[in-house]
Design a protein around this nucleic acid. Structure first.
Lengths: 151, 151
DNA sequence: GTTACTGCAAAGGCTTTGCAGTCTG
DNA sequence: CAGACTGCAAAGCCTTTGCAGTAAC
């Protein structure tokens, strides 16, 4: 019989907090659980809007600070952005991005080939300590292509 | 005898402006020439600070608007950023980025292998029209590694 | 002369900071 | 209890917008 993923993840999250000497608060738990369910690249504002629905007393500041804290301890990532608004990535597994230059959307995609790209000589010659890599393909997403056709 | 690159680039720039029905103004020329000389990923503020030294009457707004205009007509690019401040890329040739997660610096590197990566199946199945690709390697830059050692 | 650009000023949006009250461990 | 966290408010940045005057074509 399988264990509920919700419980499992909550336990892991609390362990992660303890490891980083962070207190487990209702707000942090709520934010974490919100993130687990999402596969977007939400802004702090977006996360806040989703959470206030079930936690009406939470403040935007707490959400924003918590997201920054989570990013610091590696529970989430921040995503490279062209828009000026910081966005977060809840998927820590290696993956890559399709970036629509028209609407700014970022869509994940996976490709084991790309995950294991040999690091080029240039990296080592720069004495850069590589931790991760991501391929970003820029172009026009399907939605934007379709609306372009209609014009 | 070689032609001075400065003249050449200025001519090309003016041609580019005409093609896009943009007027060639002293401010735009100054900004363009400032960009040509730089190999960084400057913010609007950074470009402005450099330019006011020789053009004391130029305004920040003009610099900022001009950079956005240049990005629109493809004279420069905007760079993916983690910092919230928009930064520009004056190198339009295919290249890739080393991103230091500690200090936020972005360093260019070239690798013909990476420029010609086969586009994965996932891209086509998403019906995404790919225009360009960039590999972003995140890690710790040499400077940050050295200062970490001293602590 | 028309059309577009500049510079100034103000507004707007997102992020960060300070602090008193509250809660976790 | 001590130290850390929350929520509120204000301040800080960066970016964008509106407009009158000015300059390019």
């Amino acid at each position: 019989m399988e264990k509920k993923t919700g419980e499992l993840q909550t336990e892991q999250f609390m362990k992660r907090c303890r490891e980083n000497r962070l207190k487990v608060t209702p707000q942090r738990l709520a934010i974490y659980q919100e993130l687990v369910g999402s596969s977007e690249h939400p802004s702090a504002d977006r996360v806040y809007r989703n959470i206030v629905r079930t936690n009406p007393t939470i403040s935007f500041d707490t959400v924003n600070r918590t997201l920054l804290t989570f990013a610091e301890i590696g529970v989430i990532d921040t995503v490279e952005s062209h828009s000026g608004v910081r966005r977060f990535d809840t998927d820590l597994a290696p993956h890559h991005h399709l970036h629509c230059v028209q609407c700014g959307s970022i869509t994940d995609f996976s490709d084991p080939m790309l995950d294991t790209l040999p690091l080029p000589e240039a990296v080592n010659s720069n004495r850069f300590q590589a931790l991760g890599r991501r391929v970003i393909i820029s172009g026009i997403c399907e939605t934007c292509r379709q609306s372009a056709r209609k014009e």
